[in-house]
């Protein structure tokens, strides 16, 4: 190591380091906007068969990211069951993407809190990364043309009605 002062190179080095960090962090900071096409993904379904999001075109999709360790997720399941039952005939598909890294954790959760909607498994976290979600749970409402209508994070009792209204307003089939 030389004894000469490192002032300038050091500053340059620091700057490039900061820039590198920004480059690494920024793509993750871009959140999905309403109106954008919903990124497509293919995951394993409950029966082990592949399940592709694009295959649900024509349906209104309520995409929910959940994990066994997430407490509000536990509250959201009965509500999602009710939504699926109520608006399924109107063209709603509730798709719950589990992000647990260990499948038994998800299975244990489902044994306690049964899901009456479609479940897919994403232990690698590819889908939540595509949607740049910032918390658990997160949900995305996707219209029949595959565009994002709404991005929502968290699940609170007082938000149920608002979410239901958004679903009802976007149903492709107005049976009721």
């Amino acid at each position: 190591m030389r004894a000469t002062p490192y002032k300038l190179p050091l500053r340059r080095w620091t700057q490039s380091l900061v820039a590198l960090c920004c480059v690494l962090v920024l793509p993750l900071a871009f959140a999905l906007e309403a109106g954008q096409p919903a990124p497509d993904f293919t995951l394993a379904g409950a029966d082990g068969k592949p399940l592709q999001l694009a295959g649900l075109r024509g349906k209104l999709v309520y995409l929910d990211f959940w994990a066994s360790w997430c407490a509000p997720c536990r509250l959201s399941f009965p509500w999602m069951n009710a939504m699926q039952e109520k608006y399924g005939p109107g063209g709603l598909v509730v798709l719950g993407v589990n992000v647990d890294q260990r499948r038994p954790d998800a299975d244990r959760f489902l044994a306690q809190v049964p899901a009456k909607f479609t479940i897919a498994y994403d232990p690698q976290g590819t889908a939540p990364k595509l949607y740049a979600i910032k918390g658990m749970p997160s949900s995305v409402l996707i219209d029949p043309q595959g565009r994002v209508l709404l991005v929502h994070a968290g699940f609170r009792d007082e938000e149920r009605d608002e979410l239901e209204a958004r679903i009802r307003a976007a149903l492709p089939l107005r049976a009721n």
């Binding site: 997430c70 407490a71 509000p72 997720c73 658990m136 749970p137 968290g154």
Partner: peptide, 8 residues
């Protein structure tokens, strides 16, 4: 939204 979100 994320307040509830990180829900640990």
């Amino acid at each position: 939204l994320l307040s509830a979100a990180l829900a640990l």
